[in-house]
Design a binder for these strands. Structure first.
Length: 492
RNA sequence: GGCUCCAUGGUCAAGCGGUUAAGACACCGCCCUUUCACGGCGGUAACAGGGGUUCGAAUCCCCUUGGAGUCACCA
């Protein structure tokens, strides 16, 4: 068997959508599982949609996710160029399109926009629903197919704008095979004579894709399920050229909570958006890998290497998968918990510093929040009390389980305050010693003694860390000040 | 609307003719615990419906229903 070659062929139109990310990931996994090559090809045949900087985003995303390509614009593997606009400059697409014209599998078309509009079919759409849009479709009527060779030459010579269309028979069926979906047959009658070369001379995605996949010796075409319905047209192209078709792997769609295909419009769903939402790259990749596939041993937390090892494209699901942000959050928390302390500290620090302006022990704070957050964005609300004591109600001091109320808390705080004031070793251990000896002396429950203190110094009922940790981090002056404030409040 | 595809708990997802129908997230409860969290234990919850085929159907076939995708000089 030949080397497995897969490609990721994005068009540079913005951030990388998670659906595309998964497609890229699967393409990567399929080739790497077999020790093959993963190729990056930039499909920039639509100059109008081209977004400045989008290519850099693609590189950054591939780099960040670890999907390292073996060939691409920046890594020549002998099949370049890897950017379609550069390829088109050499005229290869037009050249191949002309071959098809010679074979009768394609033809020149000179129809104007107006004429095309005139053959548009409008579907009777129930307009009762406000949000129902008018749907229409055009099936080209092969008007220009019947132009004689002389007529074509004449128009070309006169400089009449043209496109080149694929000539699809009106009878018979076209069948292709997909690894996941099996054999799919479509009546040729259903297939439109799609445009291969646009009037600006650029190839359409459909055509460039087929030509390039063949020229770059791509063995497995991995793409989204939305291409399933246009695949028969590609099959006809391969057949017309006499080329061997690649193995097709159409991935199931990733949908939103409404079970609709994720789109750029749904916002929050690109790789970079997720990073901004406080997720780590490894978790995103891991999560996305499991949308539509699962390993035979049921593992869920898997590194990229483990995915490469275990991936088997024959077990990809058919049904679309909902992108569940809640589960992603869980998975992210798993990665955070497993992360070594130093790395976690470095990653969390910017988020901590956003809230903590004072000179506090941020390293200790990071340790305390590590198992309590799902994304880095959770940090803010968790630690803001360190910076400023929130305005709280004395009802905070009442807790049934801890057997505390305002009165008991006042007593505890008042009795404890002088002991803290006398304490020189204001470390967690030092503070703990003071409190434990107090609790033992008074014969009260731990909670009864500790709860009021933590509440006093944090203004909250629940915090990362307990009384010792918070007091030690805040320092003697600030924490005792907060206890005095609490005593004040409770005395009124 | 045509065409194509899909259908196991709320979500992801095992299963590929014989199982008490896994597991994970979420949710609920209990334990641990100075709070919360982490961790541990347990629980609620599914084969869309109807016909076949078969000794036997979540698994195979058909129909219905539901959902999705697609129908551009966008990819």
């Amino acid at each position: 068997m030949n080397e497995v070659r897969t490609r990721y062929a994005p068009s540079p139109t913005g951030r990388m959508h998670v659906g595309n990310l998964r497609t890229a990931l699967y393409a990567y996994l399929i080739s790497k599982h077999e020790g093959g090559s993963f190729i990056l090809r930039i499909e920039d045949t639509d100059q109008e949609r081209y977004v400045e900087g989008a290519v850099e985003i693609i590189y950054r995303t591939l780099q960040g996710t670890g999907l390292i390509h073996d060939e691409g614009p920046d890594k020549d593997g002998g099949y370049g160029p890897y950017v379609q606009s550069e390829r088109q400059a050499s005229g290869i697409y037009l050249e191949y399109a002309k071959k098809l014209v010679e074979k009768g599998a394609a033809y020149y078309c000179f129809c104007s926009k107006d004429r095309l509009d005139s053959i548009k079919n409008v579907l009777a759409t129930p307009s009762e629903d406000e949000d129902s849009e008018v749907k229409e479709f055009t099936k080209y009527d092969k008007h220009c197919l019947h132009l004689s060779k002389a007529e074509v030459e004449e128009k070309l010579a006169a400089g009449v704008p043209y496109v080149i269309r694929q000539n699809i028979p009106t009878e018979g069926t076209t069948t292709f095979h997909d690894v996941i979906f099996g054999d799919i047959a479509v009546d040729n009658e259903e297939l439109d004579d799609m445009i291969l070369i646009k009037s600006d001379g650029y190839p359409t995605y459909n055509f460039a894709n087929v030509v390039d996949d063949h020229l770059m010796k791509i063995t497995h075409v991995v793409r989204g399920n939305e291409y399933l319905s246009s695949t028969p047209k590609y099959t006809r192209l391969y057949q017309a050229f006499g080329w061997e078709e690649p193995v097709y792997i159409h991935c199931p769609l990733i949908t939103n909570e409404e079970h609709k295909k994720l789109s750029k419009r749904s916002g929050h769903s690109s790789y970079e958006d997720l990073l901004e939402q406080g997720f780590v790259s490894e978790a995103i990749v891991n999560f996305v890998a499991l949308l539509g596939w699962s390993p035979s041993d049921n593992r869920e937390i898997m590194s990229l290497d483990e995915l490469v090892e275990a991936f088997d494209y024959k077990h990809i699901n058919k049904a679309p998968a909902v992108f569940d942000m809640v589960k992603l959050r869980w998975m992210n928390s798993e990665y955070l918990k497993k992360m070594d302390d130093e790395k976690f500290y470095q990653m969390a620090l910017p988020y901590i510093k956003e809230v903590i302006k004072k000179d506090l022990n941020t390293r200790r704070i990071a340790e305390l929040i590590k198992t309590r957050i799902e994304t880095f964005l959770d940090i803010k609300d968790l630690i803001d009390f360190f910076e400023d004591l929130p305005d709280y109600d004395i009802a905070m001091f009442s807790h049934k389980k801890m057997k505390t109320d305002a009165a008991s808390s006042l007593t505890v705080l008042t009795e404890l305050l002088p002991r803290f004031e006398a304490l020189n070793d204001y470390s967690e251990a030092g503070i703990e010693e003071v409190m434990m000896s107090y609790i033992k002396e008074k014969g009260i429950k731990n909670g009864q003694g500790l709860w009021p203190v933590r509440t006093a110094v944090s203004g909250k009922q629940s915090t990362p860390g307990g009384a010792y940790e918070i007091m030690s981090i805040l320092g003697k002056e600030e924490s005792l000040n907060r206890i005095r404030i609490a005593i004040d409040k409770l005395s009124q």
